[in-house]
Computed example of a mutant assay.
Amino acid sequence: MAMNKDTYRQFQEELAALDRAQEERRQQASDLPMERARREFLALRERYGLSVADVVAFFPEEEGIAYLQGLIAAADAPKAPRKQRASRKKADE
């Protein structure tokens, strides 16, 4: 039985789509929960055109203030210094 080229091509495209979906699920599973939540939050914020004020207003006042303080603290926090490698010295010959 000969397969129609269009049918075969459609089958290949469906397999590729399944592979991409599986790879995306695998990547999402390996992400840290906080990173995944951040990515989802930013997507929702962009989709609905929300500002930070809109998001903060959604929470009770105390939680909104705590959220803003956390954002400010994260922005002001100094970056962790990198460990310096010990330099190798040439032995005197």
Rank of each mutant, 00 (worst) to 15 (best):
M1C: 12
A2Q: 10
A2E: 07
A2R: 11
A2Y: 01
M3E: 14
N4V: 02
N4E: 12
N4D: 15
K5H: 04
T7N: 13
Y8Q: 14
Y8L: 15
F11C: 01
F11P: 00
E13Q: 10
E14M: 11
E14T: 07
L15T: 10
L15F: 07
A16E: 13
A16P: 05
A16H: 11
L18Q: 13
L18R: 15
D19Y: 03
R20W: 00
A21H: 05
Q22Y: 05
Q22T: 12
Q22V: 09
Q22A: 13
E23N: 08
R26N: 07
R26P: 00
R26A: 12
Q27D: 07
Q27L: 15
Q28P: 00
S30P: 01
S30W: 03
S30V: 07
D31E: 15
D31Q: 15
L32H: 15
L32F: 09
P33D: 02
P33W: 00
P33C: 00
M34W: 12
M34L: 11
M34C: 10
M34F: 11
M34N: 13
E35T: 04
E35Y: 06
A37H: 08
A37N: 11
R38G: 04
R38P: 00
R39C: 03
R39Q: 13
R39F: 02
F41K: 04
A43W: 02
L44F: 08
E46C: 04
E46W: 00
E46R: 06
Y48Q: 06
Y48A: 03
Y48C: 02
G49T: 01
G49N: 05
G49K: 02
G49I: 01
L50Q: 03
L50H: 10
V52K: 11
V52Q: 13
A53K: 09
D54H: 14
V55K: 00
V55F: 09
V55R: 01
V56Q: 04
A57I: 01
F58S: 10
F58V: 03
F59Y: 15
P60R: 10
P60S: 11
E61K: 14
E61N: 11
E61I: 05
E61M: 12
E62K: 15
G64A: 09
G64I: 00
I65V: 15
I65F: 08
A66Y: 03
A66W: 02
Y67L: 14
Y67I: 04
Y67Q: 05
Y67D: 01
Y67T: 03
L68R: 08
L68K: 02
Q69E: 14
Q69F: 06
G70E: 11
L71P: 02
I72W: 05
I72S: 05
A73L: 09
A74L: 09
A74D: 11
A75K: 08
A75H: 06
D76T: 10
D76F: 03
D76H: 09
D76P: 00
A77E: 15
A77T: 10
P78T: 01
K79S: 06
K79L: 13
K79C: 02
A80L: 14
A80R: 11
P81L: 07
P81I: 01
R82E: 14
R82G: 12
R82D: 12
K83R: 13
Q84Y: 02
R85E: 09
R85L: 08
A86N: 04
A86H: 03
S87W: 02
R88D: 07
R88W: 09
R88V: 08
K89G: 06
K89A: 14
K90Y: 06
K90G: 05
A91R: 08
A91L: 10
D92L: 07
D92M: 07
E93C: 03
E93S: 11
